[in-house]
Design a binder for these strands. Structure first.
Lengths: 246, 246
DNA sequence: ATGTCTTATTGTAGATTATACACCATCGCA
DNA sequence: TGCGATGGTGTATAATCTACAATAAGACAT
């Protein structure tokens, strides 16, 4: 076999690998959450446990978008959501942390020099059952303000995703409604605006705009068992929305 | 050597290659232009000559941004501009056109299965001397409405770049001023708006906003040798702009 | 010199949208 | 029954957007 293995090693570190990473945002009605995979391993400094974005290398004959949907499904069980590509990350140093290098070699079974990753973002109603496919890949919803230091450059990826969402919602606010459950209160939507844009909005001015939107329809139901006046529920009407804006 | 070459071939088509492509927009005062490289080659159906975006595969240890600057400089001589990443393209079919496959093998000297490319966009004052580095890589400014069918999926890349520019200019119009020469008339800026957004703007309403911008300063000079009343020149004052918006 | 052609330059009125701001209602619970 | 917490609502002012047309300046042809 004459060094065939050595050759393969050389090759696989010479050419960049391409991966996709998914930043999936969810919303509880109060706080913004993000879907992370817990990662356990050992490195020079002993055992560790930390978090990473759901992501993986793409297949040989797979489109980037397809890879993102596949990976998200494989790692979390999530299907039927819109993923949007927002940025690619290719710094040679992004896979140079020793902990990350060891983890990559163990999980991809290959020596890897660098990985260019393509970032995808989704807004999703929180609370879908998350399917855990193995003990190593366990998906969790984490409060965005409490994610600590993630694997690779994933903190940067998350920041960039948030910036993209803010910009993108200017041209089409429909993404916001993906972040809410079927029925929601006005305050929940107001909270969502505040966590995404990072600033308080005026309650009465918000109400004025909210109540003028024809595609927000009011339901009969109200909150129950709350220690204050119960708020009315609303729903987002996609049909009316599409009639107006598509 | 026992099939070592075969192995290399397998490897290089197994792992995706990563390239960058640059969409560089320029503006004459009337029409939007884009920087393209002419490509000559032969394929099954004889000689051909067509155009492609300036782009190339990245080096082993090169950041994506660095690669974009390097490639643009190598192919066109352009330096010192802002390039912004806007989207990545990775469809397996994007490198399957026979003409493109042959061209790739000749220019990269390697059999390549697929290339994931990262798109960069820049707005640049037109008219900088373009440096031609070889007979095969000759850079030209082409009218955006007259670029025909480009190599690979580059027509799609250009479309996406334009959409990105439109969106991006909402949050920061400074990019627009990169597209204009040092001194420009109000009509030139108005034309630029019209070609970028693809619709007529009201002359007087535009003037009202234009003349209220503190960072647009009027010069004494006027147009010369025009067959009508000469228009006044203005310039963009970066210092005033930064004082207000940074 | 005069007229014609082409583009430059400028304002106003009305509609729409954004902002600032405070009080009463309702419900659970002690 | 009263307190604590959140829900729900209007008005006045400022700022911005929209629609719209007549005169000015220079080049050129006669």
């Amino acid at each position: 076999m004459c060094h065939a293995n050595t050759l393969i090693m050389l090759e696989s570190s010479l050419y960049p690998h391409v991966s996709v990473d998914c930043v999936v945002f969810g919303f509880t009605g109060e706080r913004l959450h993000i879907l992370l995979i817990s990662r356990n391993g050992t490195s020079e400094d002993g055992c560790y446990s930390d978090m990473k974005l759901p992501g993986s290398v793409i297949y040989e004959n797979e489109d980037l978008d397809d890879a993102a949907y596949r990976v998200l499904h494989e790692l979390t069980g999530i299907k039927n959501i819109y993923l949007q590509q927002f940025h690619s990350f290719g710094s040679p140093s992004r896979t140079q942390n020793p902990r990350d290098k060891v983890w990559l070699e163990n999980s991809i079974h290959m020596k890897i020099g660098r990985i260019v990753t393509v970032g995808y973002v989704a807004l999703i109603k929180i609370g879908q059952k998350l399917q855990a496919f193995s003990d190593r890949y366990e998906a969790h919803w984490c409060d965005i303000d409490d994610i600590g230091t993630l694997a690779f450059d994933h903190n940067i990826v998350v920041e960039k995703a948030l910036a993209y969402v803010r910009l993108k919602l200017i041209e089409d606010p429909i993404g916001l409604y993906e972040l809410l459950p079927k029925r929601f209160t006005e305050a929940e939507l107001r909270n969502l605006h505040e966590v995404i844009y990072g600033e308080k909005v005026d309650i009465r001015n918000f109400h004025k705009k909210f109540s003028s939107l024809p595609y927000i329809v009011s339901l009969e139901e109200k909150q129950q068992n709350v220690a204050h006046r119960a708020a009315r529920y609303y729903r987002f009407d996609k049909i009316i929305y599409n009639q107006i804006y598509r």
